[in-house]
Design a protein around this nucleic acid. Structure first.
Lengths: 200, 200, 200, 200
DNA sequence: CGTTAATCGAGACGGTACGTCCTGTCTTCGG
DNA sequence: CCGAAGACAGGACGTACCGTCTCGATTAACG
């Protein structure tokens, strides 16, 4: 005579306020973007900024790292849709966008998260997941190039992605060449790398 | 009738004990290598481990970050001397060493330091300095290749270094492909990249 | 439609633990009685002894002095009930008790507190309050003596209390005559003073 | 062949500067009179104020207390010469001076020193010594009164001093009746006490 | 429609580390 | 050897967070 077919344990009591969760995530990102280090970032400050009790935070995330993971994942950078006319142009567009995304919020959050990555497998997976979206687009472009004959049919796509993306990612993560023109850099990386891949 | 020509201000008071400084640096590295996070690393623990008063630490470094910078700089990874027979072999050796150096102490310190890099220009310079030593060796190999005709005479050496080193550095910094055979990875990167640089 | 007549602001949040407060006071007195100087007495030691975090101490008392005031006030010395047969005997009993109370806990706490008295009006009031209880009993005895004709009807009771109690208090506070028999001293003070007050 | 007949160990090297000693004492009193508690008073501050190295202070006094003892002893309050016409008038003058001496530097130093008195016998002796000078004058006046027949020949002079001086000393030490007219108080104490001593 | 129970905000709890200051000792100069 | 200057090991200061806990007050869904 009770909810048939619902094997999931139905929670009694007051349900969690989604408003609180959102406020917490928002407060976290806010503080991070204000330049607070991840280690200077305190649960107390987050709770206060979100207008929420500390217990409400800890009820949702066991610790600061878990919360930052979630917050980080919620920051999405736009990935351009490559037009698909030529492999080279698509790669330049993708890498250029990658370079320009330094100024995006996610670029400011990510270096904060790095030291936690090796300690926290879940964070590692999420971080990879976010970055992989960009790399997936790049993989598609490369695979298309192989199909259309623009690229060497024997090309190791995975390796090619590493070769193309890594210099740009070093850029993002470490601001290696802070004074380099990102657009030019993208073009030159693509040109040099493509030569080895049978392109151009 | 007074000290002529002695423009250097001689410091008054008891000079600082170099023994204390060394003990502090050593204690810092020790703790870091024992797996203590940079944020879990406490000045209190460092002072205790070094057998030193907290004030003695703060007299030398204003905060944890500055101390870690110094400690990091004192950790040196050995750089292999490339034999110089062929550009390809030299690069494989250099990149392979880079990959293997993941297990070296410096590799375990460096990811801890990263989030501080963008905040602390001095730390940035030191970090670049340490990494640049490796890249300098690579530059030499590439320039030699250009001279000997093994590589394209128009090669942008700087860009080539980025192309070669970045995938490996992503590896070091982020352990991107934790399950990859580093030796193989080095070879494959070199082979793919060299094709674009005019090298066989 | 809202709480009518409830003008008292009910405190929100977890209420303070009276157990903690008591443990802190107890620890303070304990340490003081173990012979720790008020200046050697540390908040750190008090918190540790009480099994309490430092913040819990500072949440209640802004500094060591305020805490010692409270601790001091909680130490009560027993005041004897004078039998009331004769003014002389009652005074001897009161002063004798005063002299003997040197060995009481409160006598060991009080000299520690003295230098703070002039700086801290609240401490001054508490200190006076504690001492005035004894003097009040003495005032009653003297007023009774005036009523019964044992003492000069013109007697300035306040001045008489000062004359009687001060030598004994000097004794308590400063241990002026460390080798004097307290009982004898009380008797002799009373006898000499009473002669000037019309008694005996 | 030098210094014949000097059996005392002659110190070699630079002799101690008396200027330094004086500067240290002066700095101590200065700070105490500026209202610094004896426990807030730091050797560091004293040395700095005196323009002297800390070692120079510690070479002369083993710790803060010993230094404060010395400093305290160097503060002298003037004691009036009683005219000697009548015991009552002399006592009123002496007690009045005692009461007025509240505003004297020594009165401001002494309450600071009190908690140390019971711990430090040397300090106790010095403190007693300073106060006893006043009491000695009072003893002389009383003994003269006994000789001239103004006072009871059986009078216990020591007890009488205690009876007379203690209320005034409570006043000095604790400012018991802060709003009392000191001159009037002296007169009234003397009159009441003298009645019991056979005077007036 | 009144339980029931998990939620909420607030904030106290025992702890740990912070960075500063002082203690009493020491080590270096120059006088 | 004394002087100032100041570094040394140690330890307390008062503050700020940690992650947990206890409050009284909501807020649903269940019965």
């Amino acid at each position: 005579m009770t909810t048939i077919g619902t094997s999931a344990t139905r929670p009694v009591g007051r349900p969690r306020s989604s408003h609180a969760s959102e406020a917490i995530i928002a407060a976290t990102i806010e503080l991070l973007l204000e330049g607070v280090t991840i280690e200077a970032l305190s649960m107390e400050a987050i709770a206060a900024r979100a207008g929420v009790g500390k217990a409400t935070v800890y009820r949702r995330w066991p610790n600061k790292e878990a919360l930052v993971v979630e917050a980080f994942a919620s920051v999405k950078g736009a990935i351009p849709e490559p037009p698909g006319h030529s492999v080279r142009d698509d790669l330049v567009i993708l890498l250029g966008a990658m370079g320009r995304s330094q100024e995006a919020p996610e670029a400011r959050v990510s270096p904060c998260v790095m030291p936690e990555i090796h300690r926290n497998p879940e964070l590692f997976d999420r971080w990879v997941g976010v970055l992989e979206k960009r790399r997936d687009v790049m993989r598609d472009v490369l695979r298309r190039g192989v199909r259309t004959g623009e690229l060497d049919p024997e090309l190791d796509v995975e390796l090619a992605v590493a070769l193309l993306a890594s210099p740009m990612m070093m850029q993002m993560a470490l601001r290696w060449y802070p004074r380099v023109d990102k657009e030019k850099l993208a073009e030159r990386i693509v040109d040099l790398a493509l030569r080895g891949m049978g392109g151009a």
